[in-house]
């Protein structure tokens, strides 16, 4: 069970308070109508799914209910850093 530092609460809390929400940094296309079906499908469904460092979106669901990003190793499960939405990671996955 992960021990997660919520950047909004500024505290370590148990994983049970959080939900993982998938890959981070997938902006909604600004003009969806301009997207082809392929582009829209890729936005919706296609993911990096790396073995190793991964930027993910999490929400402190049973806490402050705020979303934030996490850089985590999907093999060792080490959390490298957490950062707020709109911020850029300092440890960057490939």
């Amino acid at each position: 069970m992960f021990h997660i530092y919520c950047p909004h609460c500024a505290e370590y809390r148990e994983e049970e308070e959080f939900h993982a929400k998938g890959q981070a940094h997938i902006p909604r296309p600004l003009d969806p109508e301009a997207c082809s079906d392929k582009e829209w499908g890729e936005y919706l469904f296609f993911r990096k799914n790396p073995r190793g460092l991964h930027h993910e979106l999490w929400v402190h669901a049973a806490g402050c209910r705020k979303f934030f990003n996490m850089t985590r190793d999907t093999q060792t499960y080490e959390i490298k850093e957490v950062y707020k939405i709109g911020e850029q990671p300092s440890v960057v996955a490939e």
């Binding site: 929400k21 902006p27 909604r28 979106l57 929400v59 669901a61 209910r65 705020k66 979303f67 939405i85 709109g86």
Partner: peptide
């Protein structure tokens, strides 16, 4: 509720 929050917080802050 989470749907509204995720769009507000991540897409349209």
């Amino acid at each position: 509720y989470e749907w509204l929050e995720i769009y507000h917080q991540t897409e349209w802050p």
